[in-house]
Amino acid sequence: MIGPIVSSGIVSAAWDNIFAVFLGMGFGFALESSGFSSSRKIIGTFFGYDFVVVKVFFTAAIVSSLGLLYLSYMGLVDYSLLYIQPTFLASAILGGIIMGIGFAMGGFCPGTSLCAAAVGRIDGLVFFGGMFIGVFLFSESFPLFENMYYSGSMGAKMINSVFGISPELFTFFLVLMAIGMFYGAGWIQNKVKKIEY
């Protein structure tokens, strides 16, 4: 069966939402069991006492990148049908910076705050509630940002094309970089004093 299954017409479109529930469950389980329901564990990355975020995040990124390329190589996935986040330069950078500030203040990102709320962390629930206000404020003030929101459009550009190399070669370098980072993180974690949380 050539993926994505939903686009291939093998199953009816209603299955998409059923997949969504189960994929979400896997997502929530993976995040919570890795410790992403604890804001102090997450924020440890930035003070060097716990690099769980870096480890989980980059392991997931390389596993899925490698997996998709292998599936595509074996003809199991039609890469051209996958949703590739389009690149809008200005809004990606500024949005990222704003999210970084929110991350450092709240100690969560949207997915992890939901996991924290699910296991009874009130701070997670409040963070998630705060997001509604933020989204509402953005939507209401959208005309102010509209030009910026659409500026620097580069379409569904892939990062390997920036360096002029193949996706496979880029992923190879990504794996090397990630492993280097994991060793570096372990080294720093041993140097930094431990913090109880």
């Binding site: 390389i62 292998y70 190879f172 990504l174 492993i179």
Partner: peptide, 12 residues
């Protein structure tokens, strides 16, 4: 780690 590198290299 070695396994991952080999897998990635295999793709290349």
């Amino acid at each position: 780690s070695v396994l991952l590198v080999v897998l990635a290299l295999g793709l290349v």
